[in-house]
Design a protein around this nucleic acid. Structure first.
Lengths: 199, 199
DNA sequence: AGAGTATTTGACACGACGTCAAGAAAATGC
DNA sequence: GCATTTTCTTGACGTCGTGTCAAATACTCT
């Protein structure tokens, strides 16, 4: 056995950074190879394909991100939790310059509509999976809030609504790049859901 | 002067159909040329570049789409208008098999985060422009509704919120392809905005 | 030390984008 | 009616990206 000459995790991080900034289709394996100081062929040998490499890098990101969300969604009043949740969400795709956007949303929209086109079904499931798990976290927070009388609606419906808004924010971020506006929408959403419309 | 051997508008329609289904990056000019029965070089001669061709095709689509929206947002009670608006929105990216998704959202997420990457600034403005104009239409409907006592909130904030939800729906459509779920979210959003939370 | 095995490396085939020069076809002027 | 001109068309080219393969390489285990 000959040992790898590069660190698996280093490559994963470097690759995801590129994918995040430029999208999967917009990132070439040559770019990653150059950045990581690895030969292009070695990447194919180690990961099989660009999509497989992306998937591994994405899973890594998804795990980290879920942990961070779990943290902010688990402490404080419901309003505080939701505020922190939106905050982390917006911060997540507003970091970097230019801002990197939301990798999940970008990945989803990069999917080919037809079969075989672009990213494959496995990637779609990875994206859907992260969204589902985030939805579950939000729903848990809402249910906990309901138990404490901080919320009187349907946790499942409200969680879905909140998630939809975060996905929409990811899109508007791309369109306008106007962070204050995103935060306003987030605040408004919290008001709507908590039924204090601030009028 | 030698006349064109193909119809400008035909090509635009054929091209946009492909862009819509497979994204800009996922569509090759060879595909379009084959589909349209035109030589690839002729497309370059007539449009200049893939992005320019996309932009023209997109503007065409945007105009049609705006007209349709204007129609449904201008008649009936506010609730009816919003329902028809969400209906048209969801129908728009659920048509075709497999569903084609939302071209605006896809286009936005295909944009390169950095300069020079992928679609250029002009495309971003075209996307942002359509979103802005749709927002304005929704806001008009809300204002009209407010004048008739059908709505008591802030039209600008509510319109922005609604638009955000539609962008989120476009993303969730990609993730889950679950049309009934999308419609539920839409209905819930209308309830929230009109302040009848259906509890 | 030697054999085995996985990794690295460079070359290859293929397709896509965009450019360019040469050929083709119609409108205009004489 | 014919030549000219102007535009469109056509095919070839260079570059870059993806993915494959066989040969060379370097480590490990016996």
């Amino acid at each position: 056995m000959r040992p790898r000459e590069f660190d698996h995790d280093d490559v994963l991080r470097i690759a995801f950074d590129q994918f995040w900034r430029k999208g999967v289709r917009g990132t070439s394996l040559s770019d990653i190879a150059r950045d990581a100081g690895v030969q292009r062929g070695s990447l194919y040998n180690a990961f099989g394909s660009k999509e497989a490499l992306f998937l591994q890098a994405y899973e890594r990101y998804a795990g980290d991100y879920l942990l961070a969300l779990q943290k902010v969604l688990g402490a404080g009043s419901l309003r505080k939790r939701l505020t922190a949740f939106f905050d982390l969400t917006i911060t997540n795709f507003r970091t970097g310059s230019p801002p990197r956007g939301c990798p999940t949303t970008r990945g989803l929209m990069e999917l080919g509509a037809a079969e075989g086109e672009g990213l494959d079904e496995e990637a779609r499931q990875a994206f859907a999976n992260l969204i589902s798990r985030i939805t579950a976290l939000v729903q848990d927070a809402l249910s906990a809030g309901a138990a404490r009388g901080e919320f009187g609606g349907n946790p499942a419906a409200a969680a879905l609504h909140i998630i939809t808004v975060t996905r929409g924010l990811a899109v508007l971020e791309r369109a306008f790049g106007d962070e204050p506006q995103l935060r306003k929408i987030a605040a408004h959403t919290i008001d709507l859901v908590l039924d204090k419309q601030g009028r």
